[in-house]
């Protein structure tokens, strides 16, 4: 999902020159690095990658940055997921969720939330 967004932004950016310098973005679940063309605001970067602000922190170098911060090509950025699965204490008390089932964390991420009107979600 992330890849197609990046590919699109690469195509839009046009010339091969633009490949020279891009911000490096470190993602988790699964652990990977992608390069993104700057300048870009934090909230736009998260939206392009289909990630919720509420579930992530964006760290530039080793500083936490807010959603309106402008990221540049020379930046090294980590997008750190903040959500963890919770302990067995809770887990075993919810019926139908005993133990792990074979879906990956990624499959729970919003794949298409940027494609559907967001207002659909609430009345």
């Amino acid at each position: 999902m992330a890849d197609s967004c990046l590919r699109r932004s690469r195509l839009q950016s046009g010339s091969a020159q633009a490949y020279h310098r891009r911000m490096k973005v470190h993602l988790s679940h699964p652990e990977r690095h992608v390069e993104v063309k700057g300048p870009k605001r934090v909230k736009d970067l998260l939206r392009d990658l289909n990630l919720l602000v509420e579930a992530h922190l964006v760290i530039r170098g080793d500083e936490l940055v807010t959603e309106d911060e402008l990221l540049r090509d020379e930046d090294y950025v980590e997008i750190r997921p903040v959500i963890s699965g919770g302990s067995a204490d809770e887990e075993s008390r919810v019926r139908g969720s005993r133990g792990a089932v074979e879906t990956s964390y990624r499959s729970l991420l919003p794949r298409t939330s940027h494609l559907v009107p967001r207002t659909n979600f609430l009345p």
């Binding site: 988790s28 919720l52 602000v53 509420e54 579930a55 750190r80 997921p81 959500i83 963890s84 699965g85 919770g86 809770e90 887990e91 919810v94 139908g96 969720s97 133990g99 792990a100 089932v101 074979e102 879906t103 990956s104 964390y105 499959s107 729970l108 991420l109 919003p110 939330s113 967001r118 207002t119 979600f121 609430l122």
Partner: peptide, 26 residues
């Protein structure tokens, strides 16, 4: 940062995800 490998795909993650989408909207 990487959590326990047994936690993958738990229902709790799904509930959190749903709540965070609601939180984003309101």
């Amino acid at each position: 940062v990487d959590e326990c490998p047994m936690a993958k795909g738990s229902k709790m993650l799904l509930y959190k995800e749903v709540l965070n989408r609601l939180e984003t909207e309101s």
